[in-house]
C-alpha cells in the first residue's frame, strides 16, 4: 500500500545543513501496522510528511496505492489520511459533527454521505453524545480521537499517525489503540510513530527504528523481540535460596547470578531442552514460584539499538 524508496531530505538551518532523512526506504502492506521509532529529531515526522506530500523529498519517491505522491498529489492525498503531530488537525470553533462533515466534504464526499460516515465514526470512538459540542470544549483525549475520525472520513487505504497517543490517559490511549487494530483488520495500512514502546509493541506487526535519519533496524515485531531475547532463565522462589541449593546449582557449570536472594538468573546450554528440568531438580525442594525465559521487550531493544551500534542496514 505504501512504498517509500530511498528518501532523502536535507534542511538548511542557521547552523548549517542537516540531513534529516538519509536514504530511508519503508513499505507498509495493506492491513499491516508499521511502528516507526526513533529518538527526538531522528527524522520520523519529516518522513511522515514526505509520505503525505507535505514535504518534497530531495531524493527518492513515495508511492501510495500505486500513485506517485509527487507526480499526482491530489490523487495520492485522496487515498491517505493523517493525524499530524502537535497540530490540532481540527477547527476549534466547529462542533465535532461539523468538523467531520467539513473534512469529509473537502475530501469529495457529499454532505449526506459525510454525515452518515461521521455518525459511524463518532459511535466507534464513543463521542456520539459530544457531536454537537465545539472542539474547544473537548478534552485532549477526545480531541485526539476526533482527529483520528477526521483522518478516516474518506476511508483512506493508508493512515499516518504521528504520536497518536501522546499525552493521553489510559482509557483514551486504549480507544485509539483499539481503533488502530480495527483498521488493521479492515485492511488499512498504518504507519505510526510513538515514543511509547509499549504502544508500539502492542500494535505493530513490523518495526522500523531510525537514528539520525538512518534506518538501524527493521523487522517483524516478534522476530525482533526474539532476536534480542537472551537464553537466560529466571527462577524465583518464595523465600531465599539456601547456600546448599546455590552450590548444587553451580555444579551444573552454567553461568549463574543471584540478583536478589530469591532470584536466580541461569544461562543453560541452548541446545539442551532438558536443561531447565535438571536445574529445577538440583534446586529441589525450594518453593519455586516462577520460571521464565528472558523475553526482550521493545523498550530494551530500542535502548540497545539506539544507544549501541545497532546493526546499520
Amino acid at each position: 500500500m505504501l512504498a517509500a524508496d530511498g528518501l532523502v531530505k536535507r534542511f538548511h538551518s542557521r547552523t548549517g545543513p542537516i540531513t534529516a532523512v538519509d536514504h530511508i526506504s519503508i513499505a507498509v502492506a495493506a492491513g499491516e501496522v508499521l511502528a516507526f521509532l526513533g529518538p527526538n529529531g531522528a527524522g520520523k515526522t519529516t518522513t511522515i510528511k514526505m509520505v503525505a506530500g507535505l514535504i518534497r523529498p530531495d531524493q527518492g519517491r513515495v508511492v501510495v496505492d500505486g500513485v506517485d505522491v509527487t507526480g499526482r498529489p491530489a490523487l495520492a492525498a485522496s487515498r491517505l489520511g493523517a493525524v499530524l503531530e502537535g497540530s490540532r488537525n481540527l477547527y476549534w470553533r466547529l462542533t465535532c459533527l461539523e468538523n467531520l462533515i467539513y473534512w469529509g466534504t473537502l475530501r469529495r464526499l457529499t454532505p449526506a454521505v459525510a454525515r452518515q460516515r461521521a455518525g459511524e465514526l463518532l459511535r466507534m470512538v464513543d463521542l456520539e453524545d459530544r457531536q454537537h459540542n465545539s472542539v474547544q470544549t473537548l478534552s485532549r483525549g477526545m480531541q485526539q480521537k476526533l482527529a483520528l475520525c477526521q483522518a478516516l472520513m474518506h476511508r483512506p487505504q493508508l493512515v499516518l499517525l504521528d504520536e497518536p497517543t501522546l499525552g493521553l490517559d489510559f482509557a483514551s490511549a486504549e480507544a485509539i489503540k483499539a481503533t488502530v487494530r480495527q483498521l488493521g483488520t479492515e485492511g488499512v495500512a498504518i504507519l505510526l510513530t510513538t515514543h511509547q514502546m509499549d504502544v508500539a509493541q502492542q500494535l505493530a506487526d513490523r518495526l522500523a527504528i531510525i537514528r539520525a535519519g538512518q534506518l538501524v533496524l527493521t523487522g517483524r515485531t516478534e522476530e525482533v523481540l526474539t532476536r534480542y531475547s537472551r537464553p537466560v532463565w529466571r527462577v524465583t522462589a518464595g523465600e531465599a535460596f539456601s547456600a546448599g541449593q546455590l552450590a548444587a546449582a553451580r555444579t551444573l557449570g552454567w553461568p549463574l547470578e543471584q540478583p536478589t536472594p530469591k532470584d536466580l538468573l541461569v544461562t543453560p546450554p541452548e541446545d539442551d531442552p532438558a536443561a531447565i528440568y535438571r536445574l529445577l531438580d538440583v534446586l529441589r525442594p525450594a518453593a519455586i514460584r516462577l520460571v521464565e525465559r528472558h523475553q526482550a521487550d521493545l523498550a530494551e531493544v530500542f535502548q540497545q539499538v539506539v544507544s549501541g551500534g545497532g546493526e546499520a542496514l
Partner: peptide, 14 residues
C-alpha cells in the same frame, strides 16, 4: 497559527 494548515494542504485539491 491554529495548526490546521497542514490538514487543509492535505486535501485533494490544488
Amino acid at each position: 497559527q491554529n495548526g490546521t494548515l497542514e490538514q487543509v494542504m492535505l486535501a485533494p485539491w490544488h
